[in-house]
């Protein structure tokens, strides 16, 4: 074996080891969920999932809480997605296409808001939401989440709009399409992949979000899965198999959709957050 052959073989081994490390915890979540009580505390751990235990995934849904959590997460995430896109599309379009008074200021604002930790705004948002009755509501969480997705998604979409030649829009204007009509009928369809990627990013921000949900939601029927699942941490009465099964069910949609959209999400995130 020559030196360069050796290097490329070694590189391949390392890269597969890295990939293995990256997915092992998820694999382990699944293995744990399907381990029987007897094997759980045996002298040598069970290393592969046992298919006879797959019933656990049906079991966790029999209890109402898990279903409610996931449904709540879905509503919050979907709401965050819709609101984010509704605000970010016009904002990103204006940033890509038009000069306007205060553009630099708004740009700096969008940059600075990306630096604000959620934890810093928990208290003031709590005190704003409290008199408006937005605590213990989906709306409150959707409003808070969107404030954090909006800056990033705006940049992603701005960069996408930048790639659409102005001539296409001029052609649309000559064809009789003006204003919002040209945006909706001609420009948006061109950048659909970026819009879809943005939707996925916003959705999973809402799906994953924890701090606001923890602080704003005290009513159990409104709790999303992030808070519900976090409740298992440090708690010992629920069997670990059930906890891990819920973890798998909660993680799966996020990972699956990311994988489907990964090409667009990665380039979008790279362009949006990095260049932004």
């Amino acid at each position: 074996m020559t030196r360069s052959e050796f290097i490329s073989h070694a590189a391949l081994v390392i890269i597969f080891v890295l990939a293995g490390l990256a997915i092992f915890p998820f694999y382990w979540m699944f293995v744990t969920a399907t381990t029987s009580d007897a094997n759980m505390f045996a002298a040598s751990p069970q290393l592969v999932p046992s298919l006879s235990q797959l019933g656990i995934f049906a079991q966790i849904f029999e209890e109402g809480a898990v279903k409610t959590w996931l449904a709540n997460s879905f509503i919050i995430a979907a709401g965050t997605t819709v609101l984010t896109l509704a605000l970010a599309i016009p904002l990103g379009y204006a940033f890509a296409r038009f000069p306007f008074w205060g553009k630099a200021g708004v740009g700096i604002g969008l940059l600075v808001t990306q630096m604000l930790p959620e934890a810093v705004l928990v208290v003031p948002l709590f005190s704003i939401f409290s008199p408006l009755g937005l605590l213990n509501s989906y709306a409150g969480l959707i409003l808070a989440n969107t404030a954090f997705t909006l800056p990033v998604i705006t940049w992603i979409l701005k960069n996408a709009f930048d790639t659409v030649p102005v001539e296409i829009e001029e052609a649309a204007v000559l064809d009789g399409c003006t204003g919002i009509n040209a945006l909706v009928r001609v420009v948006l369809p061109v950048i659909m992949p970026s819009v879809a990627a943005s939707a996925v990013i916003a959705f999973f921000h809402g799906w994953n979000e924890y701090v606001f949900a923890l602080t704003f939601i005290t009513n159990d029927t409104l709790k999303p899965a992030s808070v519900g699942l976090a409740g298992f941490i440090g708690e010992i009465s629920t069997p670990i198999q059930s906890v891990m099964a819920v973890g798998v069910v909660y993680t799966l949609p996020a990972v699956a959709l990311y994988l489907l959209m990964q090409r667009f999400i990665v380039s979008g995130m790279a362009a949006g957050s990095v260049k932004g």
Binding site: P165, I168, L174
Partner: peptide, 20 residues
């Protein structure tokens, strides 16, 4: 008069076809 009402058609250098 707005471009669409001028009764003209334009062929662009980049063609400017709607890709979708």
């Amino acid at each position: 008069v707005s471009p669409k009402d001028r009764n003209i058609a334009m062929v662009f250098q980049s063609y400017a076809l709607y890709p979708q």
